[in-house]
């Protein structure tokens, strides 16, 4: 039972590892070059999932401050300044500079999902897409050169000195 608990407590880790292994298996075992690339994509996605899952907190919402949080009723007079500054403070522990303007705004970190991993993963997704793009382009070139995208056939051709 303990094992089960250990797994269920961190099930997001286990899932990403399983997905990663599926990807790794495809990359190593598949003969078709496109399928290998699909495996690669799965592999990368697993890591993206891992990052996204570490930003999640129980009962937290997306890290955007709503209007009524930033502008409680009794603070109407300082209206104009806040909307310009507040987004950059979200999710950060320190918001010393903004304290002057928002003396009573209390942001509890537990209410918001950590946005940083998500932001990072936007970049990583872009990177993943580009990698996939380059991979497909290279595969296309391989096909043009060898007339096949089956690895074993290509290796056969190279061996036979063609």
């Amino acid at each position: 039972m303990e094992i089960f608990e250990a797994i269920s407590a961190k099930f997001n880790f286990w899932i990403y590892i399983i997905i990663m292994m599926i990807g790794l298996y495809a990359m190593i075992a598949k003969n078709n070059l496109i399928k290998k690339l699909i495996g690669m994509s799965i592999f990368q996605t697993a890591i993206i999932l891992f990052y996204v899952s570490i930003g999640v907190k129980d009962g937290a919402s997306i890290p955007i401050l709503y209007h009524d949080q930033v502008h409680p009723e009794h603070h109407d007079e300082s209206h104009g300044d806040h909307s310009a500054h507040s987004p950059s403070t979200d999710g950060h522990d320190s918001h010393a500079a903004e304290d002057r303007y928002l003396p009573e705004l209390v942001v509890d970190g537990n209410d918001f999902a950590n946005p940083l991993p998500h932001v990072l993963m936007l970049t990583a997704i872009v990177v993943g897409v580009s990698t996939l793009g380059v991979g497909l382009a290279v595969t296309q070139k391989v096909y043009r050169e060898y007339g096949s995208i089956e690895e074993s056939e290509i290796l056969e051709m190279i061996k036979s000195g063609k």
């Binding site: 690339l37 991979g135 290279v138």
Partner: peptide, 8 residues
Amino acid sequence: LAAYKYVI
């Protein structure tokens, strides 16, 4: 083909 391997 070498580049492909390198990609993976």
